[in-house]
């Protein structure tokens, strides 16, 4: 469980007005959730994410991970093991010359013994579906595969929480799909709690819950299909709805009542349109 209470974060910049990046955030993330955070550029998503693994500390308020306060220096090491992070650029996250060494890297730093390490690497490779690539040089992989290597390296440390900050931003459509599938699997089959940040509205639909940040505050919080009904609110936060949802919304307004305005997937749309055309 993650508990965030009255969290504010201010960046102080020499000789300039301080920047209030987060304002009085209150949020609880339950075990097993797949939570997506969306919000405009500068709304505070990455700042919030960095508070959860203690990379940043609150200016005021508190963050607890499994009951451990991130301000408690003695817990920091433990918290970093509980909360894994994956970033945007696939190339920057790779450190070794083979896929398996890359995945083992974090474990070596943790001082895990050889046998245990092998077991964890095998498990992580299998979960992200890259067993056949274990001896490959990472630079020979596609972007989606590289991101899966990065994810494998993080989950090998057996975190309870996985935070992904725009992991699909640099990927082609197939790579994005691969990464989303792996995240879903980690969440549903391995029970890892996922906190996922994206600017692509069509990627939001796989999660159980969406938190919308606006100017450092939580503006909306709910299920994807309910959030995407709030078209005007989303647009006022510089966000939007997926293309297919927009089509559904428009057709519904034109009187096609069998087309639900909370249609989120292309397949759903195809089914509904078959009733008309």
């Amino acid at each position: 469980m993650i508990k965030i209470k009255n969290l504010s974060h201010i960046y102080n910049i020499p000789r300039r007005d301080p920047i209030i990046a987060l304002k009085e955030i209150n949020l609880e993330i339950e075990r097993g959730e797949f939570l997506t955070i969306i919000g405009s550029n500068g709304s505070g998503k990455s700042t919030l994410a960095r508070h959860i693994n203690g990379l940043l500390l609150p200016t005021s308020g508190d963050v607890w991970v499994k009951g451990m306060n991130t301000k408690d220096r003695e817990c920091l090491w433990k918290i970093r093991q509980e909360v894994g992070m994956v970033f945007q650029n696939p190339d920057n996250q790779i450190v070794a010359t083979t896929v398996e060494d890359d995945i083992a890297f974090g474990l070596e730093n943790m001082g895990i013994d050889r046998e245990n390490m092998l077991e964890r690497v095998n498990w992580a490779l299998q979960v992200v579906g890259l067993e056949e690539y274990r001896r490959f040089e990472p630079h020979l992989l596609s972007g989606g595969q590289k991101q899966r290597v990065a994810i494998a390296g993080v989950i090998a440390m057996h975190p309870s929480f996985l935070i992904l900050d725009e992991p699909t931003a640099m990927l082609d459509p197939r790579g994005r799909k691969e990464v989303i599938e792996v995240i879903k699997k980690l969440n549903q089959e391995e029970g890892i709690t996922v906190i996922f940040i994206t600017h692509l509205m069509e990627e939001v639909i796989e999660s159980n819950r969406v938190v919308v940040l606006n100017k450092g505050e939580i503006a909306l919080n709910g299920k994807p299909k309910d959030i995407f009904l709030k078209v005007d609110a989303l647009r006022s936060f510089a966000l939007d709805i997926p293309q297919i949802t927009e089509l559904a919304f428009r057709l519904n307004h034109k009187g096609l009542k069998n087309i639900s305005p909370s249609t989120l997937k292309v397949e759903e749309m195809v089914e509904q349109l078959c009733l008309y055309v």
Partner: peptide, 9 residues
């Protein structure tokens, strides 16, 4: 990449 939907448009 990394632009919010409004920024993109």
């Amino acid at each position: 990449a990394n632009l919010d939907p409004q920024g993109r448009s």
